[in-house]
Design a protein around this nucleic acid. Structure first.
Length: 367
DNA sequence: TCTGGGGTCCTAGGACCC
DNA sequence: TCTGGGGTCCTAGGACCC
């Protein structure tokens, strides 16, 4: 049943919410360590090659932000509190937030530990009811987790995410259908979901700097320059995004990787690391009762060039010995290891499906 | 300033088959 | 002989997201 937003009197087919926990990792650290509150807290890798995962709002005026090398952050904000991420704790709270969302919405889509979409279209015919539900979700999250979040509410995913970004921290933003053009048009193209550095540069070179430029650009030009994604980006520039929420999805790959503090050129050391990484991915695989059909090794050289080599199995496996021997073979025989060493080593598993065999009883009664 | 870790999706080329 | 067309699978790389 389409609901009417009273301010526009246009039927809206869907109302999608986006919830974004404010400076999540840093906020959790401040929650668990009261002595950190009000201070610049920076969560991230602490080694020489670490980067910032999350900076608290107190740290941001120093110029510290996500993905900044930690070494640079320390220079910008020497008095900051630098801590390693504690993913178990973040997962715990993330799980709690999901249960709150599910109390109100059957359909949610988790993007990461600190972000999720929720579909409020079924929450009754009136916009008022939908609006109230979104407010209640935000209030409950704060009451139960003692953390603030920002919420966007809009007719689709793209706009709801934009909404939560526009009013944060601790924000609540509704984007009405009649405001879409006015809000989108002046934004830089990089604000569009799916436009990263490379695409932004290409769009700029075409003279398309703002969302308005993209919206009005000839469709055939965009398709010629960007392929199928050109059409999709133009749709987003018009505020159109029909993508449904995915619901809970099974992961398609599992990987672990290590960036060395210093480049490594010793093959034995690499082999040891491959074995460690294999243990970890295999453990994740078994914990979820899955099997894989693809084993992949990833290497990054000091110049940042990154390669992957993969091999496929005839039948799925979850056996660490099998994965290990394939991964070692890839490292030894398929990865160019010249002089200069490597800075990163990774092991990944693909072609993941549920393990049927492991669901069978160990001693079936027909034996 | 010198670039993490865990993912998804898309593209392109080659092998292979009918 | 101087060379089709389409479909599928596999591999590798790259852009992008948080």
């Amino acid at each position: 049943m389409p609901s009417r937003n009273p301010s526009v009197n246009v039927p809206v087919e869907r109302w999608i919410g986006h919830l974004d926990m404010d400076a999540f990792f840093a906020a959790v650290e401040q929650l668990d360590h009261p002595e950190y509150r009000g201070l610049p807290v920076i969560v991230g890798g602490l080694g020489p090659r670490g980067v910032v995962s999350t900076a608290s709002y107190e740290a941001r005026p120093y110029g510290v932000h996500s993905s900044l090398p930690t070494a640079v952050a320390r220079r910008l904000c020497p008095e900051g509190i630098y801590v390693m991420p504690r993913f178990h704790r973040y997962r715990e709270i993330s799980e709690h937030v999901r249960t709150i969302l599910k109390r109100f919405c059957p359909t949610i889509e988790t993007i990461s530990l600190d972000e999720a979409f929720f579909d409020l279209s079924e929450r009754g015919p009136s916009f008022e009811a939908i609006h109230q539900t979104a407010k209640t979700i935000k209030r409950d999250v704060q009451a139960e987790t003692k953390l603030t979040c920002s919420v966007g509410l809009a007719p689709n995913r793209f706009l709801s995410k934009l909404g939560s970004e526009m009013d944060k921290p601790n924000g609540f933003k509704v984007i009405d259908p009649d405001q879409i053009r006015e809000i989108l048009d002046p934004l830089p193209v990089a604000q569009i979901w799916g436009v990263g550095k490379v695409t932004a540069k290409r769009l700029t070179s075409l003279g398309l700097l703002r969302v308005r430029d993209l919206r009005l650009a000839p469709a055939d030009l965009l398709v010629r320059e960007l392929g199928a994604s050109g059409r999709r980006l133009q749709q987003l520039a018009m505020g159109i995004d029909e993508t449904p929420l995915s619901g809970e999805v099974d992961s398609k790959s599992i990987s672990r990787e290590t960036t060395y503090a210093f480049d490594v050129d010793d093959l034995e050391e690499m082999e040891l690391e491959v074995c460690r990484l294999v243990q970890q991915v295999a453990q994740s695989l078994r914990a979820e009762n899955l099997i894989c059909r693809v084993v992949r090794v990833k290497v990054r050289y000091p110049n940042f060039k990154t390669i992957t080599r993969q091999t496929q199995l005839d039948t799925g496996t979850d056996a660490p010995e099998v994965i290990e021997s394939l991964a070692l073979d890839l490292l030894r025989n398929r990865v160019p290891l010249n002089e200069g060493g490597i800075r990163l080593l990774g092991v990944g598993l693909g072609g993941i499906v549920e393990s049927i065999a492991r669901q069978l009883p160990l001693f079936p009664d027909w034996l």
